[in-house]
Design a protein around this nucleic acid. Structure first.
Length: 317
DNA sequence: GGTAGACCTGGACGC
DNA sequence: GCGTCCAGGTCTACC
């Protein structure tokens, strides 16, 4: 028996804008349907996988803060509701209230009008970490492929695989089936660390722990370098670091007009966003995102198989 | 502490 | 067709 739930989001929440705000909304098991502005994914809950459809309002133009309708393909038992609620809150950033977004817009008013502030993420830190590892040193379509294969081969019912499932795999099998290449052993190692509690998401997500300590702990993990650590920081809700990479260099050259070698451009970018302090990731990211959208149209109109494969700067040349 | 080189994969590009 | 290059980096061995 399907279950339908209604959730009241923060008063400035806009589903199509706040979901289609970071590339991970295009990665399996996530799916966005532009025609109906519906977010769909298979979530693994305590009694098994459930397909969740999320919409906002009944009109073609949803209103900010309008209630979210969560439609589940099966009965969601009462004991499962807290797990569902936690997953939705993390993924959709429902914990970032209007007060949080206003703090960002105060520092960077460029994005106040359109309301950019929340960045889509995964329901678990584990999924965010693995998605980040699969985005390093590859083209975006390859990242899409790796995540599709991970869910297809190892995700219960098509959900994202759990740490316990990946931890049991031989790296060679993971590589062969999911085309993850040299990332195989690192992914299995990370899964083991999550599975045994060596990586404790609660510690990483506790705002009482200083940013510098959290970032250093991330840098100590296998497969996590400066770019990945800074990116995972923003996925943890910590926006004080920039994930500088080849994409940043292109942005510096094409949009900001910086010239010189990649290392020099990265330093200039760091100086450019430094005044944004603990909000600099968002300032940096939405500047890039805005550029993508100026070339490819609003992100909520992108489809994974077409526009969604061609939005990165490397393909905007 | 700074820096080459290797590392999977798959698509783009030049020949 | 085939070889080369490189993409939203990381790691290791050197110096």
């Amino acid at each position: 028996m399907p279950t339908t739930i209604s959730i009241t989001p923060p008063r400035d929440y806009l589903l199509h804008r706040d979901v289609c705000s970071y590339g991970y909304f295009l990665l399996a098991p996530n799916r966005w349907t532009p025609a109906t502005r519906t977010f769909t994914r298979i979530l693994l809950l305590p009694t098994g996988p459930a397909t969740i459809h999320i919409t906002q309002g009944n009109t073609p133009r949803p209103k900010r803060g309008g209630n979210l309708t969560i439609h589940a393909s099966r009965t969601i038992n009462k004991p499962e509701l807290p797990d569902l609620h936690d997953a939705l809150t993390r993924m959709l950033r429902l914990d970032e209230t209007h007060t949080h977004t206003r703090a960002f817009h105060k520092l960077d008013p460029r994005f106040k009008h359109v309301g950019y502030a929340r960045l889509f993420r995964s329901p678990t830190m584990f999924e965010d970490v693995i998605k980040t590892v699969t985005s390093c040193n590859v083209t975006w379509p390859n990242t899409i492929n790796m995540n599709t294969l991970l869910c297809h081969h190892y995700g219960p019912g098509g959900s994202f695989p759990t740490p316990a499932i990946i931890a049991r795999l031989r790296p060679a099998n993971l590589r062969g089936r999911c085309r993850v290449g040299y990332r195989d052993a690192r992914i299995v190692h990370l899964a083991k660390m999550f599975n045994t509690g060596q990586i404790n998401p609660t510690w990483f997500q506790d705002p009482a722990n200083p940013d510098d300590d959290v970032r250093q702990a991330l840098l100590d993990l296998p497969g996590i370098g400066p770019y990945a650590a800074s990116n995972i920081m923003q996925l943890l809700g910590r926006y004080a670091y920039l994930p500088l990479d080849s994409e940043s260099v292109r942005h510096g050259r094409t949009v900001l007009g910086f010239k010189g070698h990649p290392a020099a451009i990265m330093k200039r970018i760091a100086r450019h966003f430094a005044p944004m302090g603990n909000q600099q990731f968002r300032s940096y990211w939405f500047e890039i995102w805005n550029h993508y959208e100026s070339k490819r149209g609003p992100a909520w109109t992108w489809d994974r198989e077409t526009t969604g494969k061609t939005f990165t700067a490397a393909q905007l040349k």
